[in-house]
Simulated assay, not measured.
Amino acid sequence: MAGKLVGGCSSRVTDVALCYMIEFVLGESDLVDVRFAVSPLNELTLSLRVLKNPARHPMHLPFARRVRGVDTEVLLALSNERGWTPDFLSPRPVTPFTRFEDEFAALREVPARTMRRDFRAVLGEVPAVLRDRERMLAAVEHYWEVAFAGRWDRMRAILEADIAFRGREMVQHGLATMLSGISERITFVSPVVRVLIKGVDPWRVEARGQGLTLVPSLFALRTAVPVDPGAPPLLIYAARGAGTLWETGRPSGPAALAGVLGQVRADLLAELGEPRSSTDIARRAGVTTSAVNQHLRALRDAGLLASQRHGRSVVYARTELGDALVSHSAGRGSKAPGLSLERV
């Protein structure tokens, strides 16, 4: 579904010879039902393009190198040469914090006729290797266990941080500004959301009370929509901070800033140029969440950070004042070592 029609339009987004318009028409009830959600199964599905063509996804080469012992014959057969995948593998999340176990249980219940229809829509004919339903399901489940299960907390933290940022943008600046900030290929002139996508016939979807679901992704290059024009409005987009997924180091605060705030808080402020959850910050620092929370709250109370709860996490990001302080302090003296357990 949403994990395959990724725009590859020219830089001139008005070039309709290369790009086609997908329109979601939102009614009055839909305008107040624009919601965000994280979908583990969508992430798994989108990641298949990394396995298929890792050279196109250099940022995720560490991911591709770590995937071993999976049923690649099945997994690579699930997408066509353009990276499109059947809609049943990219479900519309029913809750903001969907678990893989729940999505996979629903996947098991997808009727065989629906699978065949979606396979044909993307692949033309169902490859022989995909006619064994149990083998296909086992391959997907094992791929999750190998490639995602041990890393999902970190992935989810980045996705939730993006949602917190987009939500704040929508509250402060409105739906149109938030959507255009996701991609230059997305515009909103009430009541229509328009998305430029390459390689599909244009279509127009009336939401009719189904709302619009926005799903951030670490593996989407740009934007993605369902293959089926009749599917409920769903838009997957590239999440902010995806480039930090495989980082191992942490930025150090400028020495001048550390002289005022202390090194730990200077390091935290330097790191929060992109939104992060408190649990993610603690994980990267190798300490408990409670060990950093008092520092984060102190920076927030001083007006240098903003915070927002999202699900089980509290997401922090620098305010304009925090940005200005870090920028002004940069280059004034040498940098101190990165955040450490001893100093926390």
Rank of each mutant, 00 (worst) to 15 (best):
I182K: 02
R185K: 13
V205N: 06
E247Q: 05
A306H: 00
S290F: 09
Y237H: 06
Y237M: 04
V227S: 09
P191C: 09
I182L: 14
A224L: 14
I186F: 04
L234N: 00
D228M: 08
P233G: 11
L196S: 11
A238S: 10
G286W: 07
E271D: 14
P216D: 15
A207R: 01
G311M: 00
S278Q: 09
T248H: 04
A207W: 00
G209L: 08
A255W: 05
E247G: 01
A298F: 03
L305A: 00
R240H: 10
F219Q: 03
E271Q: 11
W203S: 13
L304P: 00
P229E: 04
R309V: 13
A298I: 03
I236M: 13
V225K: 07
P254L: 14
I197W: 05
A255E: 10
R300E: 15
V200R: 12
E271C: 07
R297T: 03
W203I: 10
T213V: 13
A239T: 03
P191M: 07
L268K: 02
Y316D: 01
D267R: 00
S190L: 13
I281Q: 02
S217F: 02
K198P: 06
P254F: 08
L196D: 10
G303F: 00
L214P: 04
L234E: 02
V225F: 06
R204E: 12
L212P: 00
V315T: 12
A285I: 09
G303S: 06
G286I: 06
P216I: 15
L272P: 04
T244V: 11
A224K: 05
E247A: 10
V200P: 10
V260K: 06
A282H: 08
D267K: 02
G249R: 10
N293I: 10
T248V: 04
A220T: 11
E247H: 06
P229D: 05
P229T: 08
I182C: 05
R300K: 14
K198Y: 13
R297A: 04
R240A: 13
A285E: 06
R276Q: 15
T187A: 15
D301I: 04
K198I: 11
G230S: 14
A255Y: 03
A231H: 08
R240D: 04
R318A: 08
V225Q: 05
L304S: 00
Q294W: 13
I186Y: 07
L268N: 02
A266F: 03
G311K: 00
L268G: 01
R300V: 02
G249H: 08
S217R: 01
